[in-house]
Simulated scan of single mutants.
Amino acid sequence: MDFQRVDVVYALLFDEKANKILMVFNKNGTWSLPGGAVETGETLQEATIREVKEETGYDIKVGNIVTLNEAFIDKNHVYFITYHGQITKRPEQIPQEENIIKVEWVNLEEADRLMPYHPEGISKILNESGAKYTLQKE
Rank of each mutant, 00 (worst) to 15 (best):
M1P: 04
D2G: 15
F3T: 02
F3S: 07
R5A: 05
V6D: 00
V8P: 00
V8G: 07
V8F: 01
V9I: 08
Y10C: 04
A11V: 13
A11S: 08
F14M: 05
F14Q: 01
D15I: 00
E16T: 10
E16D: 09
K17R: 15
K17M: 10
L22M: 05
L22Y: 04
L22T: 09
V24S: 08
G29V: 00
G29S: 11
W31V: 02
S32N: 15
L33T: 04
P34E: 03
G35F: 01
G36T: 11
G36E: 02
A37C: 11
V38Y: 10
V38I: 09
T40M: 13
G41F: 04
E42S: 08
E42L: 14
T43D: 12
L44V: 05
E46K: 01
E54V: 14
E54C: 06
T56I: 08
G57T: 06
K61L: 15
K61Y: 12
V62G: 02
I65K: 04
I65Q: 00
V66R: 04
L68E: 05
N69P: 04
N69L: 11
F72Y: 13
D74G: 06
H77W: 07
H77D: 13
H77E: 14
Y79Q: 13
I81P: 00
I81C: 06
H84R: 15
H84A: 11
G85V: 06
G85C: 06
T88D: 07
T88W: 11
Q93W: 02
I94Y: 00
P95I: 10
Q96H: 07
Q96W: 09
E97C: 08
K102W: 12
K102T: 08
K102Y: 12
V103R: 00
E104S: 07
W105D: 10
W105G: 06
V106D: 07
V106Q: 08
V106Y: 10
N107K: 12
L108R: 08
E109W: 12
E109Y: 10
E109G: 05
E109L: 13
E110L: 11
E110V: 15
E110G: 08
A111G: 06
D112P: 14
L114Y: 09
L114Q: 06
M115K: 01
M115L: 15
P116A: 05
P116C: 08
Y117M: 14
Y117H: 14
Y117V: 10
H118G: 02
P119I: 01
G121L: 07
G121E: 06
S123L: 09
L126I: 02
L126G: 02
L126S: 03
G130T: 00
G130N: 01
K132C: 12
Y133D: 11
Y133A: 14
T134P: 11
T134Y: 04
L135K: 12
K137G: 14
E138P: 12
